[in-house]
């Protein structure tokens, strides 16, 4: 579905990603782990075109999206849930959803589908999104991305700072999306959260993927966690 090959990318003269290669398959959850500064968030931004890549290719369903202007990447079906949620904080819940729907010109049906996943949001449509609780804000950030009816969903530490019930809800949502054929790339730091949803786990270090393994073969004591994440 989405294949990154030999990506070099960074900010100005600072190179972050080096020859990065990664593949996310249809109907699969690929978790990305690694220490702070390994380049996990930068990789997601490079896919979105928000960080310019100087080399490599990013194939989405046979189309190279690496040279597309940033605003055209989501129109090809890439939904993005940025780190720290990045809601349009002064807009209402309904307006944030509307922005998501406009990306790929989706309408009322998509809106209803997304809101039925998160009934709490339906009760708060007129509320300014910056005043929602942390968990509700994360729901909205995910809902906004799902309004694209994405083929590929990028989630950057969605469970950061949330209470267990909310983490469970987000995990259930990700698992449910799998059955609809969405390819999910999930950046996540907590081992138990990764093992409960991942099909495969990619370990990043120094701006590149060092190792990709099937999640079924991993246990919390696997040596990769100690080597690449430090837990």
């Amino acid at each position: 579905m989405l294949t990154l090959t030999g990506i070099d990318a960074g900010y100005g003269s600072v190179q972050v990603l080096r020859r990065l290669t990664l593949e996310a398959r249809t109907g699969e959850v690929l978790c990305v782990m690694g220490r702070n500064g390994a380049g996990k968030s930068t990789m997601l931004k490079a896919i979105m075109g928000l960080v310019p890549a100087s080399a490599g290719s990013i194939m989405l369903d046979g189309l190279d999206i690496i040279r597309l202007p940033a605003h055209e990447v989501p129109r090809h079906g890439v939904g993005y849930v940025p780190q720290g949620r990045r809601l349009f904080a002064e807009l209402t819940v309904a307006e944030n959803i509307e922005i998501g729907l406009m990306t790929r010109r989706r309408g009322q049906r998509t809106r209803d589908d997304v809101l039925s996943l998160f009934p709490r949001l339906r009760e708060r449509l007129k509320q300014v999104s910056g005043t929602l609780s942390g968990g509700e804000q994360q729901m909205l950030a995910i809902a906004r991305a799902l309004c694209l009816e994405p083929k590929v969903l990028l989630l950057d530490e969605p469970t950061e700072g949330l209470q267990p019930s909310m983490i469970a809800l987000i995990r259930d949502t990700v698992v449910a999306l799998k059955s609809t054929g969405v390819a999910t790339i999930l950046v996540e730091q907590r081992v138990d959260a990764v093992l409960s949803v991942a099909d495969r786990v990619a370990f990043m270090t120094g701006g590149t993927v060092a190792e990709t393994v099937e999640a079924a073969g991993l246990t919390p004591t696997a040596p990769q966690f100690a080597a690449y994440v430090g837990v």
């Binding site: 979105m48 075109g49 928000l50 202007p69 940033a70 605003h71 055209e72 990447v73 989501p74 129109r75 993005y80 940025p82 990045r86 349009f88 904080a89 002064e90 807009l91 307006e95 509307e98 922005i99 998501g100 406009m102 990306t103 790929r104 906004r144 694209l148």
Partner: peptide
Amino acid sequence: GLIMRATQYDRETARAFGINV
């Protein structure tokens, strides 16, 4: 107007939602 306000609050995220900033 909604597109303009979204761009005002966060132009990077606006781009990630298909807005031609």
